[in-house]
Design a protein around this nucleic acid. Sequence first.
DNA 1: CTTGTCTATAACCAGAAGGTTATGGAGAGT
DNA 2: ACTCTCCATAACCTTCTGGTTATAGACAAG
Lengths: 109, 109
Amino acid sequence: MEDDQLDLVFGALADRTRRAILAGLARADANVADLTAMFTMSQPAISKHLKVLEAAGLVSRTRQGTMRLSHLEAEPLRDATGWLADYRTYWTESYERLDELLDSLDSLD
Amino acid sequence: MEDDQLDLVFGALADRTRRAILAGLARADANVADLTAMFTMSQPAISKHLKVLEAAGLVSRTRQGTMRLSHLEAEPLRDATGWLADYRTYWTESYERLDELLDSLDSLD
DNA sequence: CTTGTCTATAACCAGAAGGTTATGGAGAGT
DNA sequence: ACTCTCCATAACCTTCTGGTTATAGACAAG
């Protein structure tokens, strides 16, 4: 993965509002009004966050009548995970939580 | 993991210089002068980056005579990976690279 | 104790980030 | 055509960020 792309992805994830937006979109696609209702924040602020997420490739959007539906695109999250995985050999703590993570990853198939 | 902590970790990873510093520290501990030599950047700039990494818990530092050795603390990277793992079910692309990642994670024990 | 090396800190700067309010444009319905 | 809703954009403000240079502090060695 390109450094530029990682900048955008990690940068997008560095804001808790954007992480919360992703969490919301994980449950269901949503329009801007829906997302604005989820936060104590103005609608333009949400639109800006969506633009950041879109630039990072984490969200795609389609017109649906007068609305614009935001959809989670989780692919870059895998790429980011791939980058992080390079450091797994340096995870030095007890393996409890690591096992947990591995279990959850294994449960994929 | 706390939201505050994730802010710091993802924020720290959002800069390519800091990611490169982590990559360097993965190979060996290093002092500020060493790291400064690795980049076309002033020493204070590197010190600032180290401060950010330290705040995120990704680097610890010990005095070694007149030097200060920086040491990689990868634990927060695992926490970040854990957060990202919640989205694994939304990785929609072909499973080739995912399998690769799972293999590498499995090879841990 | 003076000198030299390594690092931190201060002061500064330009630009990016994250928020606001105000406004304008696009579609659907009447 | 009007209107209402949904959303984007512009303009603005404040704070944070990432860099700089200049300087001061800590430690080792003469």
